[in-house]
Every structure is written in C-alpha cells, then in structure tokens.
C-alpha cells in the first residue's frame, strides 16, 4: 500500500516532465536521425519522408570537411570561439552577479537590467545594434569614439581588417554578452538564496568581499556554476544566429567569423532550397559531439559527487 502510494506520488511529480522530454526531445531525436537518411527538403514531408538515400547526407558533410578550402579555418574559428566565449560567459556572469551582490539593491537591479538587454533583444535588432557599433568606418560608434578621443586617426576595420582577432573578438563579444546575462540571472538568483547571516557574520570577522566570495559565496553556488558552464559549452557549439546577420551584412569576415554550426546552417538553409535532410545529419553529429563533450565535462568536474542524496525521503 505504502509502496503504491509512493509510486503514485512520484508519478504525479515526474510524469509531466518525462512526457515532455519524451515527446519533445527523444521522439524528435529519433525522427531527426531517421530524417538524416532521407532527402527531405523544403519541409516537403509528404514527398521525401519515405525515400531512403542511405548515408548520402553524411557523405556530403564528410566530403565538405575534406575538400572545402575554408573548412580548416571554420574548425579553428569554432574552437577559439567556443573556448573564449565560454570563459567570458561563465566568469563574466559570475563577476557581475558577485559584484552586484555587494552593492545596494537599487543600482544592482538597474545594472543587471542593462546586462539583460542582449538576451531580451530580438536577434535582428541586436545584430543591428552591434553592426553600427563595430562598423569599420567613421559611421561606426566605436571608431567615431576612438577618433574623437584622438586615440586613432583612421577608422579600424575590426571585423574585416584585423585578421583573425578582429572578427573573432566581435563574435566572442556579441555572443558573450548574451551568455553573460544567462549566467548572471542564474548566479544572482542563487546568491540571493544564501542566508545573509553567513555573510554578515564573515564581515563582522573582518572578511573582505574577495574572501567572502571565494570562501562562502562561490562554494555555495558551485553547482550553478557547473551548470552554466556545461550548458554554455553545449549551446555555444550549436549557436549561430547572432553571427549570421553580421556576416551577411559584411561586418564580420566570413572566413574568420563562420563557425561549424553557421557553416552547416548556411549549407542547409543558406538560400533558395532548405535542406532538412542535411541539417538532420548535422544535428545528429552535433548531438553525438555534444553528448560526448557534456559527458566529459561532467566527469572531469566530478559532477556525480556533487549530486547529494535527497533529503527527507521516507
């Protein structure tokens, strides 16, 4: 009886989440893998769904990897982009949430709001904002600022001229800002749950902000940090939307701004036709890479040990 009631209660709590995971993750994943073996394109499921073309889509990707003259650069871009942005995201988010933690609430919430803007902006508007900001001529905000201050006497063509770090820094900056706000929200809400008594007690003992952060705050939100780290790693591998328009508009050099996911996006959906079969194959590969990377991260960071036994199970 007791066992039955426990099972009932457990399913009450877990069923919705499991259903949604099965329906919107596992099932689509199976469908994606299936579609990667079909020539499906232009969303024409009626026509292509029952056609089977074997591993053609994978072969196509393999062929491009091997023969495309820009592919090597795309790989380098991806590695640089993911690593640096990841660091910017996690540490930036942590820094801002810690810093705002120590200042009064009013200014902290305003500041946090500013850092939230990148996340809330529609992608096209966000790209437009930075397009003008980094534009490589006098019309660019950054260039005109530096010109006015007399730091430079000729506009810097950051996205196209300073190769490779110019385009890299722009895409890292733009994606980093979006990620920083993500980390910031997670960390801030986690920090707000730490009993203030702990902090006050430490402060009375003469602890500095730095040592409070290091000894009390960071350890208490460590799983949040880990979480943000892993999540960002995986999502950076698949993100392309914020870079796409900037390359399209000529702000960022295409060879040095294109990352793996953007490369796939452009090949599958670039223009004219929409090749969902190819996209599905790429998604399958990405899923595998993502799983392996995610798994490795969890292992390296000894994630399992951090999962505590639940309290209070009867």
């Amino acid at each position: 009886m007791k066992k039955y009631s426990n099972l009932f209660q457990l399913s009450f709590f877990l069923t919705p989440a499991l259903v949604i995971i099965i329906v919107f993750y596992l099932l689509p994943l199976v469908l994606t893998v299936y579609m990667s073996f079909t020539p499906i394109r232009n969303w024409n499921t009626e026509r292509y769904l029952s056609q089977f073309i074997g591993s053609y889509n994978y072969y196509r990707i393999y062929h491009m990897v091997k023969y495309d003259p820009i592919f090597r650069q795309v790989m380098i871009n991806t590695i640089i982009f993911v690593l640096i942005t990841l660091i910017v995201n996690v540490f930036g988010g942590l820094l801002i949430s810690l810093a705002t933690y120590f200042i009064n609430e009013k200014s902290s919430s305003t500041l946090r709001l500013v850092w939230l803007l990148p996340r809330m902006s529609p992608i096209a508007v966000y790209s437009l904002v930075w397009y003008y900001f980094f534009h490589g001529s006098e019309i660019g905000t950054l260039n005109s600022l530096l010109l006015k201050l007399g730091i430079i006497d000729k506009p810097i063509v950051l996205g196209q001229g300073v190769i490779p770090w110019g385009p890299w820094s722009i895409i890292v900056f733009i994606n980093g800002l979006v990620g920083v706000s993500f980390g910031m929200i997670v960390f801030s809400s986690a920090l707000s749950h730490i009993p203030r008594e702990l902090v006050i007690a430490a402060r009375v003992d003469g602890a500095t902000n730095w040592s409070i952060s290091r000894k009390i705050l960071i350890p208490m939100i460590r799983w949040h940090i880990l979480y943000v780290f892993t999540w960002q790693l995986l999502s950076l591998i698949t993100s392309y939307a914020h870079t796409f328009l900037l390359i399209e508009w000529g702000l960022v050099n295409r060879d040095y701004g294109t990352t793996l996911s953007l490369y796939v996006f452009l090949t599958a959906f670039g223009r004219g036709e929409q090749d969902q079969g190819l996209a599905a194959a790429a998604a399958t590969i990405l899923a595998i890479i993502g799983t392996v990377l995610g798994f490795l991260t969890l292992k390296i960071l000894k994630f399992e040990r951090m999962i505590a036994k639940p309290r209070g199970d009867i």
Binding site: Y59, R60, H63, M64, Y67, D68, P69, I70, F71, Q160, G250, R254, T267, D275
Partner: peptide, 26 residues
C-alpha cells in the same frame, strides 16, 4: 569580396570558386 580586398588575385579567386563548388557534392 576577396579580390576587392586584395586577399586573392583573380586567378586564385577562380580556383577558390572551383574548389568550393567541388567541395559540396550536391
């Protein structure tokens, strides 16, 4: 874009086009 910026000479750019076309079987 590449020839305008002087990153490639015209004949290199033609080769670049050929290589990129050949890179995608489709």
């Amino acid at each position: 874009d590449k020839v305008l910026r002087g990153e490639m000479k015209p004949e290199e750019a033609v080769q670049f086009l050929i290589d990129r076309i050949k890179a995608d079987p489709e």
